[in-house]
Amino acid sequence: MTEPSLGRHFREQQSNPQAGADRPGMFAGASHFSMVNPQFQAATNIQNIQNSYHTWNANDVFAIRKWLKAPDPSTNFVAACDKRTPGTGEWIFSHPEFVKWREATSGILWIQGKVGSGKTFLSTAIIENLQANQAFLCCYYYFDNRDNSQTKTNARGLLQSLLLQMATRDETVHPALHELYRRSNHGLMEPTIAGLSATLEVVSKDLSPVYLVLDAMDECSEAFDVLKHLAHLKKNLCIAVTSRYLATDYDVSWYIHLDHTEYFHQDIAQYLEEKIQASKIEARTLD
């Protein structure tokens, strides 16, 4: 049986708009885009990162955050944390491909697995592990086709969220984001996709190293466009992606195939053991 791949599904979508209709979120409305260079000045020394963030008055910071209209991926993160069985997914921290990615300064780690292989819980374990280290910034995003707003399925939502995570800190805003806000008639106009992408690229250069975890790429309706944006960002970020689909026709540095490892079965066994123990405790309580 041929394994699902990004390239094949995109070609099917192009030749037949109904192809893949039973797989929600794959490449609907994919289109080309052009980059716009906003000519921001980026810091080149890691020591100057904090100086790159300008302190504006509280009203300005609030206005910029409100103008971005960024989807909140923390709701998905918290929900996954609450459901994840403690200890599951931690095998990945010693996986050779993950270790190489973790020790790198840029590049993409692609984690592929079928439905039910625990990709979201794995993403969540990775995020928790990275956030425990204060030496670098960890950003994340969960594509989610069950979200009623549908903002968590497209490229705009991703770029808005990443800019909010990377370019705003407490009462400070990166000057590149503030300039995009100014060029958008001080928040009266929505930013273009190209403007968001170009600004994010500038901001990411100031923050290296930054780790970015993207869960459920297969639930993104504009996955082809997102991958084009990532092609620009992967020079500055260490990006981990989980997906049902292979990364065919897309350049990745490291690859983990969950369906070809024994770890998935270990996680299932650990999950079932927890449920069994919980049932025993509940039964004793009822007695």
Score class of each variant (00 low, 15 high):
231 A>T: 14
205 K>W: 05
2 T>K: 14
10 F>L: 06
219 E>V: 01
110 W>V: 00
72 D>F: 01
287 D>N: 14
39 Q>W: 05
285 T>S: 13
6 L>S: 00
128 E>A: 12
153 T>N: 07
195 G>M: 07
114 K>N: 10
58 A>H: 12
181 Y>W: 15
54 H>F: 12
183 R>C: 02
20 G>V: 01
147 D>C: 08
279 S>Q: 14
195 G>E: 03
18 Q>R: 00
264 F>D: 03
252 V>G: 01
149 S>Y: 12
137 L>A: 13
44 T>P: 04
257 H>M: 10
250 Y>L: 03
83 K>D: 13
64 I>N: 03
221 S>E: 00
166 M>L: 15
119 K>F: 01
109 L>E: 01
106 S>G: 07
240 A>G: 07
97 E>Q: 14
229 H>I: 11
214 L>K: 06
190 E>Y: 12
98 F>Y: 15
95 H>M: 01
137 L>R: 06
133 N>F: 11
127 I>N: 06
279 S>F: 11
175 P>S: 07
217 M>K: 06
11 R>N: 07
53 Y>L: 05
140 Y>G: 05
173 V>D: 03
220 C>R: 07
167 A>H: 04
79 A>T: 15
280 K>T: 09
89 G>H: 12
38 P>K: 00
89 G>W: 03
4 P>F: 04
131 Q>G: 04
184 S>C: 15
239 I>M: 13
49 I>L: 15
208 S>D: 11
44 T>A: 15
200 L>A: 04
85 T>G: 04
271 Y>W: 09
7 G>K: 08
25 G>K: 00
178 H>V: 08
127 I>T: 10
98 F>G: 11
277 Q>R: 15
150 Q>T: 03
97 E>I: 02
122 L>E: 00
108 I>W: 02
87 G>I: 13
169 R>P: 00
93 F>V: 14
103 E>S: 12
234 K>Q: 15
158 L>G: 05
273 E>W: 13
211 Y>R: 13
18 Q>F: 06
169 R>W: 04
108 I>R: 08
204 S>V: 04
205 K>S: 10
173 V>P: 09
88 T>D: 11
276 I>M: 10
43 A>V: 12
2 T>R: 14
198 A>L: 01
152 K>C: 08
258 L>M: 11
103 E>Y: 08
108 I>L: 09
138 C>H: 08
129 N>A: 12
85 T>R: 10
57 N>S: 09
215 D>H: 07
36 V>W: 02
43 A>K: 12
253 S>V: 06
177 L>Q: 02
145 N>P: 03
38 P>C: 00
150 Q>Y: 03
15 S>H: 11
172 T>N: 06
243 S>I: 04
263 Y>Q: 10
270 Q>W: 02
31 S>G: 00
199 T>M: 07
206 D>H: 02
151 T>S: 03
252 V>F: 01
95 H>L: 03
267 D>F: 06
97 E>M: 00
144 D>P: 06
249 D>P: 11
113 G>P: 12
108 I>C: 03
186 H>C: 13
73 P>R: 02
32 H>A: 09
9 H>L: 11
20 G>D: 02
80 A>V: 10
106 S>Y: 04
39 Q>A: 10
4 P>A: 11
283 A>S: 13
111 I>P: 01
32 H>G: 02
98 F>T: 06
133 N>C: 15
25 G>V: 07
156 R>S: 09
85 T>S: 13
85 T>Y: 05
104 A>C: 04
